[in-house]
Design a protein around this nucleic acid. Structure first.
Lengths: 186, 186
DNA sequence: GTCTATACCCGGATAGAC
DNA sequence: GTCTATCCGGGTATAGAC
């Protein structure tokens, strides 16, 4: 899939891996350089800062997420399709999903410097799931459905375990989707 | 509830607050000292290390959690009661729940030095929810129910917002419980 | 119990040679 | 594109006076 293993690509791959395992704050530039087999100075030839490595990693997934929500303003998706899309997004950017809301420093980076407020991205999802004239309890059910799509997708892919090619088993996907729908529907 | 506001207690209160907001790694001893109105050196009179502050905070909630699971080996609880208990535990130690699985450094601290392996505490819960002869999809449903109890409880209490006295609205609790049960039951 | 001062280390980042 | 060397800041922790 990736054309060539340029140094830049290798760095991103290593960083994605280490960030997922140790967290963004818990991973040092030296850690990445060691895995890469070079010095920290060499890293700075390819990326101007540690934060830029993170931004490069998050750019695509964030864009996909934003695209989904923007599209929903024109043509609202039925809950089943929205939840399915959320599962797929979580599965695609598995490692990133782990990084994002586990590290306060990362949250800050995102909210500070990205086009959109991004904390309100989540709120948009909840609002879309809860429906137009949602009361408080409907909002809670929306949270429940969302929580299932995100967390159980990650859990299922960890369960699949060893080699598992970053692919979510279709049967698992169906089960997660149904569980989320049940949680949503009063 | 707390007898006197000894310095030790004040430190713990401030630390719980800051850890929840900035993460354990993201909070420095200096941060805590500033809030306390003293210097970092003063802090070290009360606690021998930063990790010890965290341990003091986690001791009670961890014990409660362990107690619940141990008790279940003798007399297994029906899913409804187990899920209810998990909601209550999450609500009681709201800030701590946030700290624990958001910071890899904290996970390490817990797994390293606590009596039980603790990563397997979660697995015990999943196993209990999935039932004795659970297949793969039943395990996924168990994850879904567990995810709802934990994450939606936290979300609901944040929603409650400002002053909210660390108390989970009974109506909210019921809604969370029902959503979790629906997610669990095929 | 709290202070000042400081040791020590580690992380991010830069300069400049090769 | 990678190296050596180094700066700087901030973090944990300690020594010792008060």
């Amino acid at each position: 899939m990736s054309p060539a293993s340029s140094t830049k690509e290798r760095i991103l791959g290593i960083a994605r891996d280490l960030f997922a395992r140790q967290g963004y704050t818990g991973t040092s530039i030296a850690d990445i350089a060691r895995e890469l087999g070079t010095t920290t100075a060499a890293l700075y030839y390819h990326f101007p800062s540690k934060a830029d490595i993170l931004r490069a990693l998050l750019a695509d997934p964030m864009a996909a997420y934003t695209r989904l929500l923007d599209g929903m303003r024109d043509t609202p998706l039925p809950p089943e399709e929205l939840l399915g899309a959320l599962i797929d997004l979580a599965a695609e950017s598995r490692e990133l999903a782990v990084i994002i809301d586990r590290d306060p420093a990362v949250l800050k980076l995102i909210t500070d410097q990205l086009p959109q407020p991004s904390e309100q991205l989540n709120e948009q999802v909840i609002a879309a799931l809860a429906g137009p004239d949602a009361d408080h309890l409907a909002t809670i059910r929306a949270h429940a459905a969302y929580s299932v799509t995100k967390n159980v997708t990650l859990a299922a892919m960890s369960l699949g375990a060893p080699g598992a090619d970053n692919k979510l088993d279709p049967a698992d996907r169906a089960e997660i989707l149904h569980a989320a729908l049940r949680a949503l529907d009063q």
